[in-house]
Amino acid sequence: MTFDITPIVEAVAAVLCAVVTCVLVPYIKSKTTAEQQKEINAWVKIAVAAAEQIYVGSGRGEEKKAYVLEWLRAHGVTVDDEKLDAMIEAAVYELSQGLIPLEGVVVGEEKSNE
């Protein structure tokens, strides 16, 4: 008597494909998105810090934001405007609170030429 295991092998292969499709692929995509998010946040912080150094003084927020947006677009950062605005505001807040350790960046005060 011979036993044909082909249907069992096919069933196991189908289950494995379903697991890969339903579990592994979304997991990999979520990890890529998280890494991309970290990278975008880093770019935003760099652009905000650069704008703070270039446009010294208060009342220049629109110039700073325009610079940040242009810099990010030039470096290939494509995020919808609402999310990008929130990320920029968060980076400005972190910078003003000293949460982003950047040497030589003074926020809210004029730099002195000592």
Results as ranks from 00 to 15, higher is better:
S112I: 11
G108M: 00
D85C: 06
L69P: 00
F3M: 00
G98S: 03
V20P: 01
L99Y: 06
E103A: 13
K83C: 00
S112A: 15
A90K: 11
G98Q: 03
G108C: 01
V92Q: 12
G61C: 09
Q53A: 10
E39G: 00
P7S: 03
E114S: 07
T21I: 15
I40Y: 03
Q36I: 03
E63A: 11
E10P: 00
V44L: 01
Q97N: 08
V9S: 11
A47C: 05
L84P: 03
I28E: 04
G98E: 02
K45N: 09
E63I: 01
A34G: 01
S30C: 05
L16N: 12
E82S: 11
E39Y: 09
G59M: 09
Y55L: 04
E52Q: 12
E89W: 09
C22H: 05
E89Y: 10
P101K: 13
E35V: 12
R60T: 07
H75E: 04
L95V: 03
K64R: 15
V15F: 10
A66Y: 02
D81N: 05
V79I: 15
T32L: 14
A91N: 05
E52H: 05
V92I: 08
V106G: 00
V56H: 04
A42P: 02
E35A: 13
E35F: 08
R60W: 04
V15S: 06
L69C: 04
A91I: 03
A91M: 05
L72P: 01
D81P: 01
V107D: 07
P7Q: 02
E35W: 07
F3I: 12
V48A: 05
P101E: 14
Y27S: 10
D80I: 07
V92G: 00
C17L: 14
Q37Y: 07
A47Q: 06
A51F: 02
H75V: 03
A74I: 00
Q53D: 09
V68H: 01
K111I: 11
L84V: 04
E89Q: 14
V12D: 05
V44S: 04
G98I: 02
P101I: 06
V107G: 06
S58M: 11
A34H: 05
L95G: 02
G108I: 00
T78E: 14
A50S: 10
D80P: 01
E89V: 11
V56K: 14
L95S: 07
